[in-house]
Simulated scan of single mutants.
Amino acid sequence: MDTIVMTGAAGGVATMLRPLLRAHYDLVLSDRGAAPGDLAANERWTTADLTRPDELAPLMAGADGLIHLGGQSVEADWDTVNMANIQGYQNILEASRAAGVGRVIFASSNHACGFYPRTRRIGIDQAVRPDGFYGVSKAFGEALGSLYADKWGLRVMSIRIGNIAERPADHRRLSIWQHPEDLAQLIRIGLEHPEIHHAIVYGASHNERAWWDNGTALSLGYRPKHSAEDHADYAMAEQAKVGPEPIGDLFQGGTFCADGFDGDLERTLTARLPRT
């Protein structure tokens, strides 16, 4: 089987993905901390820091592909996001290029486009509208993946992940949710499809309330098996416990948009950005 490196392997998404992917690949798992106690026979652990290029070169040696889940996973100050998500991603892309790694899966995020109103349905051709420094780092990562595909021949899939869980946890997630099995399917397409150059796709299951046109993923053969609507009663009951958020409820990025908002709300809602 191909050898695939997975960064951020101690995180929640990686923990859900590991049993779904190790049947198809030998996994080299990496994070900054110690190895978990449940490694399978075809999983091995390498402790590495994304900000340390000297630790990434041996990590990528001999690998066929990379699933990059590592980095800062929520909004933070600029220095933290910059080092972990921008410099860190460039570091591991450069290590991948030097090692001859052919495939890269980049965990982008819906927060690269979070300031689009919930009334807009968007595809991958609209301009990015990040809702914080974290979203900026994901938009940057998509651009960096495009560069490494065009200039150095890597095959890169950037997945704008919505929310990965067994079921959607509230009203917003009925539009952006993705079951772990569907994410694993999308990752396998990115690692194996012969025509990938640099593809941007949305990490979402079959969601009737979706805000995103996921035509690119569908054209590559993605067929989600799970539907958010099957969990609608649960999600809405959970939403009732939270209550409304006057600004966040207007935008696709939710509370990321509301956090520290001090802009012109009407202008932000009605702005029509040019297509990329």
Rank of each mutant, 00 (worst) to 15 (best):
M1R: 15
A10L: 07
H24L: 10
H24V: 08
V28C: 01
V28S: 00
L29D: 05
R32A: 11
A35S: 03
P36C: 04
P36A: 01
G37E: 13
L39A: 05
A40M: 02
A48N: 09
R52M: 02
P53T: 01
L56T: 11
D64Y: 09
I67C: 08
H68Y: 14
A76F: 13
V81M: 09
M83H: 06
Q90V: 02
Q90M: 06
R97W: 04
R97H: 05
R103F: 05
A107D: 10
S109M: 07
N110F: 02
P117R: 05
R121V: 13
I122D: 01
Q126A: 09
R129S: 02
G132N: 11
E142G: 11
E142V: 08
G145W: 06
S146D: 00
D150P: 00
G153N: 06
L154M: 15
I159S: 09
I161V: 15
I164Q: 09
A165K: 08
A165E: 11
P168K: 13
P168S: 12
A169S: 12
H171Q: 12
I176L: 13
E181G: 08
Q185H: 09
I189H: 03
G190Q: 12
I196S: 11
Y202V: 09
H206A: 14
H206E: 13
R223Y: 09
P224I: 06
S227N: 04
E229N: 05
D230G: 07
A237E: 15
E238F: 04
E238T: 04
A240T: 06
P244S: 11
P244W: 11
G253C: 04
G260H: 11
G260R: 04
G260T: 10
E266F: 05
L269V: 04
T270Q: 14
